[in-house]
Design a binder for these strands. Structure first.
Length: 798
DNA sequence: CATTAGAATAACACC
DNA sequence: TATTCTAATG
């Protein structure tokens, strides 16, 4: 749980997680020699990077392609600002998107400058920085400075209540959808008053009103959601010029990472802050804009020069990360997008391995193959030098894809780490425990109250809670007070009353302990103990109960890193990632989004199938724009790889326990063939690649095709590998042969057999793609290689 | 009021 | 398939 230790590193924080010692000069260097070289951070920068570092004044747009050393340039720029005496550390504001990026920059800065006595730059995510500011000015938007930050879960539950209160059918109008709408408005910096007309009339004509009601409710709860953090700050800046002026003076230099991902609210926030001195440096890459769904506006970066006239634009185009073929494949893919700023990335490392492409029968086999392959790469049997597990990553489009890999890696004992996945703090037991802590810190936290009054079961069901809520409404108090009242006034009868009294007394006691400044670690244990929460899981005989207890223990342990419960809760609401820094060798599994900004010697990109990637859902919602964003995501994926990049897809995949067929992703066809090596027989899975060698109906050519297979590097590889992995070979071989035979002779109306869908009839043939109406599974579009003529089915040795 | 069986439904990415 | 919701039962 090392991540819990990493503080926000903003403003008043005392130090970095672990400050690097300043690189000490070799003894031979005299003090004067040192003085003559006051800018070690400039060493080794290329001319473009150097220009970006030295252009300190006025607006600067750094267009930094993937792997061109932008973090390096950014940190050097900060070091330069400080070394030149342009600003003191805390007069520099550096904004990132992810905590991971913030952490990395802090680390690098620490390495570059050592620990500064003058404090640190304001370095953090938009949200983290806004929390700091908002706590100071909360009263300007009707909040107390100890407001709580709701996560998505709380948000949804709150909205659900409002929807039900309005008598809207929450089946047809789910809270999630409303949450999405409201988030969208907040991303565009629209307060409820500013949502007008057709937009306010969405969501069963109630969108605008529900938004208003939601904000009122948040205000009453002294709470904000993520979107509010920025929205409130923009509101404050706009309504209080004095406050704005104060920060404009304070932050003399502003740096923004991943500028292509800023949304309107963030953009406004930045523009307001930079208005005076215009010392703003934005770094971004329009080709890596992948957060359109959360309101990011690529327009922000495309418009930069118009927003800040006279801006210097500096392009970083030398890629230091990937070898030639990989970079070329990525460039070829992204070229299909329209409306780019355009960059020409180049690398000194020409050549290297081509991007490898392989198709599989289904998702499980894909996982199996990748598992074997990871081990092979780690042993160095893939041509180049071995790549340790830490240097390998599997990047998926959607987090549910991770499971197949986890399952497989567990069975073969391949160590892995999941980054992003289901998060520690989103687990039920952790959130329950946190709700107890929240109550202890602020007893009027109604959401926390609701969450745990009846956890563990205290016989206080819906009815009891409703009574308490009614009293709270009547008295205009919080739920805890209302509960007290309910018991005292006898509005709640016998059995439940005693339980409720016990609960209220418990909260009072814990709150008292917090006020008395009792040791928070011991207190946390006491709370979990006295509330019966620990006992509840101890009594639980389900297989996951021990794990949950373990998690609770870990939670308590994590508390030790903080001074008090408040500090801990604050931290957790914003830092929801679990970056375990354990040193063991493990292959990483994460989403493409989580991988942005990272790099690995060897990268696997599974699941390149139409519908999954590009994702059908985003294309339905966003059309061509969304498709381009998906393509950028593919670009991000490929450019994570340094030396080895392997793309794969599966013809069949289980979705909700239902088998679905899929065609290879259209992105595969867009990869320039000369930079790709197909590991499967030509014409079978390779999309456009095998076109020339695609077998036709005639048996003769079939044999020729088969000969090709045996001659292909992919087949040789498999043979080679088969020696060390006897299990894998027969399976692969079966597929090869079957697939080759299967391609022949389909005609419309022909009866065919498919391993997962059973029998069906061919309806349409388009090249190597068939549309088949299955007797049970309905109509499917799939590659011809996945079905056999019905009569042959019996021979298939599956 | 709690428990439970059976049905409905779900899953895109993040702070 | 796995989790969550609903309605029926104790």
């Amino acid at each position: 749980m090392n991540n819990l230790r990493t503080r926000l590193g903003v403003g008043g924080d005392r130090r970095y997680g672990r400050a690097m010692s300043e690189p000490s000069a070799p003894p031979s260097l005299s003090a004067r020699a040192m003085a003559a070289r006051p800018t070690p951070y400039l060493d080794g920068l290329n001319p473009a990077q150097r220009a970006a570092v030295e252009a300190l004044d006025g607006p600067v747009l750094m267009l930094a392609g993937a792997g061109t050393g932008k973090t390096r340039a950014l940190t050097a720029r900060i070091a330069h600002l400080l070394a030149q005496g342009r600003a003191r550390p805390n007069e520099v504001l550096a904004v990132t998107f992810t905590n991971k990026a913030a952490r990395e920059m802090k680390e690098r800065l620490g390495r570059l400058m050592g620990e500064s006595v003058e404090g640190l730059p304001w370095l953090g995510t938009f949200h983290a920085i806004c929390v700091k500011l908002l706590r100071r000015h909360a009263e300007l938007v009707g909040l107390k400075s100890n407001f709580t930050i709701l996560d998505t879960d709380d948000q949804i539950r709150l909205l659900k209540q409002l929807i039900i209160a309005e008598n809207i059918d929450e089946k047809r109008w789910p809270a999630r959808m409303l949450a999405g709408l409201i988030d969208g408005w907040k991303n565009r910096a629209l307060t409820p008053e500013r949502v007008k007309g057709a937009e306010a009339a969405t969501f069963n004509n109630m969108g605008g009103e529900l938004y208003t009601a939601y904000q009122a409710r948040l205000s009453a709860l002294n709470a904000v959601d993520f979107g509010d953090l920025l929205l409130h700050m923009v509101t404050i800046f706009q309504a209080h010029p004095d406050v704005l002026a104060q920060y404009q003076r304070w932050f003399r230099y502003i740096l923004v990472d991943e500028y292509q991902d800023t949304n309107v609210a963030q953009y406004l926030w930045l523009r307001l802050l930079a208005q005076g001195h215009r010392n703003i440096c934005c770094v971004g890459d329009d080709d890596q804009s992948i957060y359109g769904w959360r309101g990011a506006e690529v327009g922000n970066i495309l418009r930069f020069e118009a927003d800040f006239p006279g801006a210097q634009v500096i392009r970083l185009e030398q890629n230091y990360r990937s070898t030639g073929h990989i970079l070329a494949a990525a460039s070829g893919l992204i070229a299909a997008n329209a409306g780019r700023l355009g960059k020409t990335l180049w690398t000194a490392a020409e050549g290297g391995a081509k991007v490898r492409l392989i198709g599989h029968w289904d998702g499980e086999e894909e996982a199996r193959w990748i598992g074997d392959e990871v081990e092979a790469v780690a042993r160095g049997t893939r041509g180049a030098a071995p790549v340790s597990l830490n240097g390998q990553a599997i990047l998926v489009r959607a987090s549910h894809q991770m499971r197949a890999f986890e399952d497989r890696f567990l069975t073969i004992g391949l160590p892995y780490r999941v980054i992003g996945g289901p998060r520690f703090y989103e687990r039920q037991e952790i959130r329950d425990a946190m709700a107890y802590f929240r109550l202890a810190v602020s007893p009027d936290d109604d959401l926390a109250f609701e969450r745990v009054v009846n956890v563990p079961k205290r016989g206080l069901g819906d009815k009891a809670v409703q009574t308490v809520q009614a009293i709270a409404r009547e008295d205009g108090t919080g739920l805890l007070e209302a509960a007290r009242h309910a018991v005292a006034s006898g509005r709640l009868s016998g059995r439940g009353a005693g339980q409720l009294r016990g609960f209220v007394e418990g909260v009072d006691r814990w709150h008292g302990a917090v006020l008395a400044g009792e040791g928070h670690v011991a207190l946390a244990e006491t709370i979990l103990d006295e509330s019966g929460y620990t006992a509840m899981w101890q009594a639980d005989k389900s297989p996951e109960a021990p794990g949950r207890l373990e998690n609770l223990k870990e939670l308590v342990k994590a508390l030790e890193q903080f001074e008090n419960l408040q500090g801990f809760l604050e931290h957790v609401s914003l830092i929801m990632d679990n970056a375990s820094e354990d040193a063991a060798e493990k292959v990483s599994i994460m989403t493409l989004h989580a991988a942005k900004g990272l790099e690995f010697p060897a990268v696997f990109l599974p699941g390149w199938e139409d519908g999954l990637f590009p994702s059908q859902r985003s294309m339905d919602e966003g059309g061509l724009k969304a498709l381009e964003e998906e393509r950028r995501l593919a670009y991000v994926g490929i450019t994570r790889a340094e030396r080895l990049c392997t793309i794969s897809f599966a013809g069949n995949r289980r979705v909700y326990g239902q088998w679905q067929s899929a065609l290879p992703s259209r992105f595969i066809d867009e990869l320039p063939a000369e930079h790709v090596e197909v590991l499967t027989p030509p014409g079978l899975y390779g999309g456009g690649f095998g076109a020339a060698a695609r077998p036709t109906a005639s048996g003769v050519e079939d044999r020729a095709a088969r000969a090709d297979v045996y001659a292909s590097p992919g087949w040789k590889r498999m043979q080679e590998r088969a020696g060390s992995r006897p299990l894998a070979q027969p399976r692969e071989a079966r597929h090869m042969v079957i697939d080759l035979d299967a391609v022949s002779d389909f005609e419309p109306g022909e009866r065919v057999f498919h391993q997962k869908f059973g029998y069906g009839m061919v309806r349409l043939i388009e090249g190597d793609k068939l549309t088949v109406v299955f007797e049970k599974a309905g109509e499917k579009k799939l590659l011809a290689s996945f079905v056999v003529a019905a009569g042959d089915a019996g021979d298939v040795p599956f």
